[in-house]
């Protein structure tokens, strides 16, 4: 086992353990923090793979954006500091069964799939390449999905503004 493998297993353990803690935590704020560590672990694996751009985006979007949003909504709700009651046994059993089934399905897929990549075809994940792909219209370009997604985000933003903006004559 070399150093690289040790780092990989460390990151994997961090991700899995904090994911497990996130779903079993009794306090909702703790669950959010463990979710954060899970996401950081995933970002760490991206760094380990030398995909720095994706790792940084993972941190910006999930850690800096979504988890902060979740924490904010936890702050704004009452009783955020109280312990949640432990779920009834029936629900726990069904959750366990669902988890095992999902795990088995994923394991089966990985087991049956023959990984053909020999690790020699390396596409350099530099920002330049990503940018060219993202805005390319030719083969392997993502210009159309990119624009569609930005339209969706624009629509969401306008929707937020409409909800937040109250007309004066109604409220006063």
């Amino acid at each position: 086992m070399n150093g690289s493998a040790i780092i990989f297993y460390g990151l994997g353990a961090l991700t899995l353990v904090s994911a497990l803690l996130a779903v079993t935590a009794k306090k909702i704020f703790r669950a959010a923090i463990f979710l954060l560590f899970t996401l950081i672990g995933v970002a760490g694996i991206y760094f380990w793979l030398n995909y720095e751009f994706i790792a940084a985006v993972q941190i910006v979007v999930y850690v800096g954006g979504i988890v902060v949003m979740i924490i904010f909504s936890i702050f704004l709700t009452q009783q955020s500091g109280e312990k949640l009651p432990s779920p009834p046994t029936r629900r726990m059993v069904s959750a366990l069964v669902a988890t095992i089934l999902g795990f088995a399905l994923a394991g089966l897929q990985i087991w049956q799939h023959h990984f053909t990549g020999d690790g020699k075809i390396v596409i350099e994940p530099s920002v330049l390449n990503i940018g060219k792909r993202m805005l390319g219209t030719g083969d392997g370009g993502y210009a159309l999905p990119f624009e569609v997604v930005s339209m969706l985000l624009l629509a969401a933003m306008i929707g937020c503004i409409v909800i937040a903006m109250r007309s004066n004559n109604k409220t006063t």
Binding site: I40, E52, F53, A55, A56, V57, I59, V60, V63, G64, G65, V68, S126, V127
Partner: peptide
Amino acid sequence: VNIGVLYITAISSI
């Protein structure tokens, strides 16, 4: 790191 500035923005959000 080849994404230096983006890395800084990302980590500072932690």
